[in-house]
Amino acid sequence: MKAKLLNYLRYIFVGLIVAMFMFPIVWVIMLSLKPPEYNFTIPPSFIFPPTLRHYWWSLVDPGYYNKHIYNSIILSSVATVMAIALSAPAAYAFSRFGFKLKNFLMGWYLGLYLAPPIVFLTPYYFIMKSLGLIGTYPAIWIAFQIFSVPLGVWLLKNFFDEVPRELEEAAMLDGCGRLRALIHIILPVGAPGFIITALFIFVFCWNNLLFPMALGGPEVKPLTLSTMEHFRMIGVTWNYIATGSVFIMTIPAIIFIIFRRYLVRGLMLGAAR
């Protein structure tokens, strides 16, 4: 039957796509397990005696990446919470109200996302220096907001838009205050949207390189920086880059896998209407 063939093709297509996109990731995982002699063989080696010594170096002795993993987590999670706290009210306002400066403000928020990040580096250094925050977590948490809040506002606004106004209007007609309506009605329905927004903001903070480079110090160095340091002018240690990359990929992946129900549920939000 035509439908069955189509379905077959669909599965093959998706399977191929997933394989192609996963391949570099799998390859990097392999690189992290290869003895250095196998890094650059001709032809590239798929079969090799795997070794854990690079992970040993990364996590145990000298445990090079431990602090950086911790830093990345702290930097990204707190920044995400801050961003959500700041952008949620604004997103709600943009979604539910029409007010004079609305379009201008929305455009301005979006425009910030366009600014080349480099322009912020030196001025932020000065600001943080005068606040005495260079090399501390708060400096980077604050700096991350410059792209997290615009992103958060836009994503959350779209998710709020998908929640029908009638829900809270009905609640308020019943005598609820707006705040209560928000907490009891909107939040539960919009929770998947919050979670997805938080996840995306988290990933963007997690992947960020420039702000920690400019404002940070050794105590707050995240994974992106420390992995990239192995790519030096005078020599590259690929296996350590590979282990660092694996750590960089794994933690958001784990979070996404944990929250995958919300991923799908958030995506299904509209269909449930």
Binding site: L121, M213, A214, E229, R232
Partner: peptide
């Protein structure tokens, strides 16, 4: 500290 080339420059100059 042992950082990347451009970071040495960026942090020192800043």
């Amino acid at each position: 500290e042992g950082v990347s080339y451009y970071e040495v420059r960026l942090r020192a100059v800043s």
